[in-house]
């Protein structure tokens, strides 16, 4: 886990990590959320609606924005304060995602940073983007 303190952070600071979506993640998300919409649990239904397979929950992939700030940027001293997400492409089981975040603004008075983040799939296609507001706690 990274442990950037507020004074270590600058505009342009970037962190990223990679993860692959598998069926166990989908099952765990279903158990937690109760979202049993057939688009996410029934491959035949999803194919009938024009997708190549069942669609991964958008909020499952977005949970990696939490990991981005809580583990990587800034990491240990993170306090997530806001998240604005736009989805642009579907994600499927087996996709490998790269989650990237870059500091775009620093509020010195209240020790809040803004991070512009995006998630790319293995084809380098952007599947979502986000603006994240994070407080940085004292060390």
């Amino acid at each position: 886990m990274n442990d950037y303190g507020f004074s270590d952070i600058y505009v342009g600071l970037e962190e990223s990590f990679v993860t692959t979506i598998d069926d166990s993640m989908m099952k765990n998300f279903l158990d937690i959320s109760g979202d049993n919409n057939p688009l996410h649990v029934n491959a035949d239904y999803a194919k009938d609606k024009g997708f190549s397979d069942k669609v991964v929950y958008g909020l499952l992939t977005s949970s990696f924005y939490s990991t981005l700030v809580g583990v990587y940027l800034p990491g240990k001293y993170c306090l997530l304060q806001g998240l604005n997400i736009q989805f642009s492409k579907p994600v499927f089981c087996g996709d490998t995602l790269k989650i990237i975040g870059k500091v775009s603004y620093i509020n010195e008075a209240y020790k809040q940073i803004e991070i512009k983040a995006r998630i790319l799939n293995q084809k380098d296609q952007k599947v979502s983007r986000a603006t994240i507001k994070v407080g940085v706690m004292d060390e």
Binding site: N107, E108, A109, Q112
Partner: peptide, 22 residues
């Protein structure tokens, strides 16, 4: 929290910076 968001948005929109004491 909205107070922090207001200050951040004003700083970005108007290109100015505030100190906590102000």
């Amino acid at each position: 929290l909205n107070h922090i968001n207001l200050v951040s948005a004003i700083e970005m929109e108007f290109g100015i910076r505030f100190a906590l004491g102000e």
